[in-house]
Design a protein around this nucleic acid. Structure first.
Lengths: 181, 181
DNA sequence: GTCTATACACCGATAGAC
DNA sequence: GTCTATCGGTGTATAGAC
């Protein structure tokens, strides 16, 4: 599908500029399509593009992060794999999280349900691994929430300090942090 | 000063909508001033308003968070006080961090230096307290960075999950987290 | 399916009366 | 110091040719 490539480029525009800053002009330049062509693929315009972008993100999250977590190996190995995939997913900390960016401005009202679902799904899936690793339900949920929280915080700091070191540090210690009692 | 009150209202618009979403119409409604009146107070328009908002934030950060950290009491007591002030500062997790919001979109290019300085100042001041508490320089810096990272991450999660619990949890355990070896 | 041309609303910004 | 009125530019969205 060529549409997948277009969506991938649209994702980057929303990530970098946020919902309000992702203008049709920028989206047009990023995809190489004219404005009218964008409306051919996304009849409801920008809102539909953002929805498609969130669907794409859910798909990527599922394929590259959640699927490994639900795998059949040792919990420690699955978490190690997730860390690697998270590192790839955010390009070593150089990219903002779309879920966090779209939680600001008008897009918050439009998509807060889907944003919440995506975050919760990630947390729940990670918590399940921790339960398998021997933690009780509450501790697992809290640790999982904490892991996502640290990933998000490290992305904010990486952007704010213009230095990916905080992200790299969080990713590196993630398996140890999650599995230590 | 009445201008302080106007800036306080402008802050909330930038927090909620981001730089691109903070339109003059919204800023006008929020302050009760006409567009032309806003230009009387901020001749360079929106960019100057955002700069004023960042100055105001730096002032608030200094007064309510950094000053207590530089106080003369026990490190443990100063950090406890900071936690309380951070809780107030972000309205118990209901408000986004302006530094994080302005690090997205065009405002990132305009203000990334000031955003980085503000974050670094906070981290450095906190690290100094930890050094006084007995940590070596590297450990103190890392712990301080981690604390700010967790605060930022908890704000992202609070917004994304529409639940301030993650923020409250981070704030509650902050003193213990920072001072345990 | 893509383009050019265009419609209309809103944006940031300014002029000038009060 | 605030307002109304207005400017040029840009935003989203559409019409219609190819």
């Amino acid at each position: 599908m060529e549409k997948e490539e277009a969506i991938a480029r649209i994702v980057k525009v929303f990530q970098q500029y946020g919902y309000e800053g992702a203008t049709l002009t920028r989206l047009s330049k990023a995809t190489g399509l004219g404005k009218a062509s964008l409306y051919h693929h996304f009849p409801k315009g920008k809102e539909e593009m953002a929805a498609a972008v969130l669907n794409s993100l859910n798909h990527c999250l599922e394929q590259s992060i959640l699927a490994p977590l639900r795998g059949s190996g040792e919990p420690r190995e699955r978490i190690r794999l997730m860390s690697i995939k998270v590192d790839e997913f955010y390009n070593c900390g150089q990219q903002s999280c779309l879920l966090a960016v779209l939680a600001i401005g008008e897009s918050h009202n439009l998509f807060h349900t889907q944003i919440g679902c995506a975050l919760n799904l990630w947390i729940d899936t990670l918590a399940q691994v921790l339960i398998e690793a021997g933690f009780n339900s509450d501790a697992a949920r809290q640790k999982a929430e904490d892991a996502i929280l640290q990933i998000q915080g490290s992305l904010v700091l990486a952007r704010g300090l213009n230095d990916t070191a905080p992200f790299k540090r969080v990713i590196k210690r993630l398996p140890e942090y999650l599995l230590n009692p």
